[in-house]
Amino acid sequence: MIRLLEQPRPFHQIIFDNLHGMYDNPLIWLFIWLIIADIATGFVKSLVAKNTNSTKGINGLIKHGLVLFVGLSVYPIITASGFSSAADSFIVFCNLFYAVSFIENWGQIGLPLPEWLKKYIYKLSDEYKIKHEEDK
């Protein structure tokens, strides 16, 4: 009976609790580390290809920073709203796209990748290489 008289917790406190809970979430840590790895391999790729460009680098950092900001800002709000599965799905899809970008960079640097994986990554496929050579 006493519970009926209690005030519900304010929404902002629930958001802060979810924000604090992100610290122990492996999906969030994978998201952060994949972004860092993508930035690092993208920079190394530009050095190997000898087309390092500060404008492209700054634009990439801004893009990655915005994705990180949006991901880390939206996740606790969505989970506080009761849609934790949707928040996890959003982060999983971001992780998948960053993993593909990391693998593309890794392969374009010239580091070893399994052949079965190369055929599924368009930028590492023979079709992409042939088309890219024709455009030159």
Rank of each mutant, 00 (worst) to 15 (best):
R3P: 09
I78K: 01
F97G: 01
V70Q: 05
R9Y: 10
Y128P: 15
Y23I: 13
S85C: 01
S73Y: 10
F83E: 15
V70H: 07
V70R: 02
K50W: 08
L27K: 00
F31H: 04
A86Q: 11
I14A: 12
L72R: 02
F102Q: 07
D135W: 15
I32Q: 06
R9Q: 10
L47R: 04
K45C: 03
I121E: 00
L61K: 09
S84K: 12
P76L: 03
D17A: 15
L111G: 05
L68R: 03
V44S: 12
Y128A: 09
E133F: 07
F16P: 08
H12E: 07
A99G: 10
W29H: 12
P76Y: 09
W33G: 13
V70C: 00
S84P: 11
S54H: 11
F93H: 08
A49Y: 03
A86V: 06
R3G: 09
D17G: 12
L27D: 11
W106R: 08
K118G: 01
P114V: 14
A37F: 03
L30G: 04
M1T: 15
E115C: 08
F11M: 14
K63D: 11
G21W: 14
G107Q: 11
N59Y: 12
Y98W: 10
M22A: 07
M1N: 14
G65S: 08
L66K: 02
T52W: 09
F90H: 12
C94I: 04
C94P: 03
L68H: 00
K123D: 15
G42P: 00
S89K: 13
H132T: 03
I58C: 10
F83P: 07
I62F: 07
P112K: 03
E104W: 00
Y120C: 09
L47P: 04
N53C: 03
V74L: 08
G57D: 02
I77S: 00
N51F: 12
S85M: 13
I39S: 12
L30P: 07
G21V: 14
F31L: 02
I103L: 10
I121Y: 05
G110F: 06
P76G: 05
T79E: 03
K118Y: 01
L117Y: 13
D126Y: 02
H12V: 11
F102N: 05
E6N: 15
L113P: 05
S125N: 09
A86I: 07
Y23D: 13
Y75L: 04
P114M: 15
G71A: 05
F83W: 15
V74D: 04
K118E: 14
I36Y: 07
G42Y: 02
K45Y: 12
I103F: 00
A37R: 00
Y122C: 06
I91E: 08
P76F: 10
F11T: 15
E127Y: 05
P10E: 08
S46G: 13
A87S: 00
D38T: 00
L47N: 05
L124R: 05
I28Q: 02
H132A: 04
S101M: 09
L113E: 13
M1E: 12
